[in-house]
Simulated scan of single mutants.
Amino acid sequence: MNAVPDITLNNGVKIPQLGFGTFQIPPADTRAATLTALEIGYRHIDTAEMYGNEKEVGQAVRDSGIDRDDIFITSKLNNPFHEPAAAHAAFDQSLADLGLAHLDLFLIHWPLPALGKFVETWKALEEIYRSGRVRAIGVSNFQPHHLRRLLEGSVIVPAVNQVEVHPYLTQDEVRAFDAEHDIATEAWSPIAQGKVLDDPIIVGIANTVGRTPAQVTLRWALQRGDIVFPKSVTRSRVEENFALFDFELSEGDMAEISALNRNERTGLDPDRNNG
């Protein structure tokens, strides 16, 4: 088994730097895919209320036979629940659907800036955190101006900010703001829905180091210090995505990949997504 390094969050909680993402995995396929990931060695699972597969993730965790405390599990607050009371109820529902007594990380999934309630929603997450039922809280898809407003009106600094990051969207400004405030950056869609895998620069580096384009892209993200969770329902690809810790990219390779930035999203713009 490859040894996945931990990153220590700003409250002292340790999170595996490589995880298994369940975004876009249908509920019918989620249990088997998550079990496969756990068998291969993943100990970090990322799900969300919005994905509709929390029950299946929880079932896989139970069926794996692995001690619950050895698996880091993240879920996220769905967009309709930005009222504080609704956020509390939604968190309770996530725990019930997962069949867990606690979560390791719970995030506000989107800032929904037109709604303008993410600060009071964050205060609800602070209350949940203080209840001891979640080990860390954070945000997802927050831009620096969202984070500035959040930090001005809150007590707890988010432990993580989960944003779309890949070679075509390097998110340098967001990552710099996160680092300045001791917020860990998590990268979703780390291979840009596959769009970067045919890029000549990435293919060339992959050929040089004897790895696949996906492995090179994921390794780039890891060496930048991001927490990464690729997803696949194909066992061979899940294994491939886990085999990242017995090689390194050179500084030149890293710079070439970073230079591919186009500020090109595969997902929604956080300033335009309002639920």
Rank of each mutant, 00 (worst) to 15 (best):
P167Q: 02
N161P: 07
L112V: 14
H82F: 14
I71C: 02
V160L: 04
G65V: 10
A96I: 13
R135E: 09
E180Y: 04
I108V: 15
V203E: 12
A221Y: 10
E240K: 01
M50F: 10
H109N: 08
A48H: 02
P113L: 06
F72G: 00
A114F: 03
R68I: 05
H102V: 15
L197T: 13
R31L: 09
A37I: 04
D182F: 10
L18H: 07
P230R: 06
F91G: 05
V165C: 12
F106L: 01
A101Q: 08
N273H: 11
D172F: 08
K14L: 10
T185R: 02
H88F: 14
R237D: 12
R149M: 09
W122S: 02
D271V: 14
D271K: 02
G138V: 09
Q171V: 15
P27V: 11
N261I: 08
M254Y: 03
G153T: 14
I137Y: 01
P158Q: 08
D253M: 10
T170L: 12
S250R: 08
N261V: 04
Y129T: 10
A96F: 12
I25E: 11
W188R: 02
R237V: 00
H146V: 08
N11G: 07
G21N: 04
D70T: 10
I201S: 04
A96E: 15
V174C: 08
E56T: 15
N263F: 05
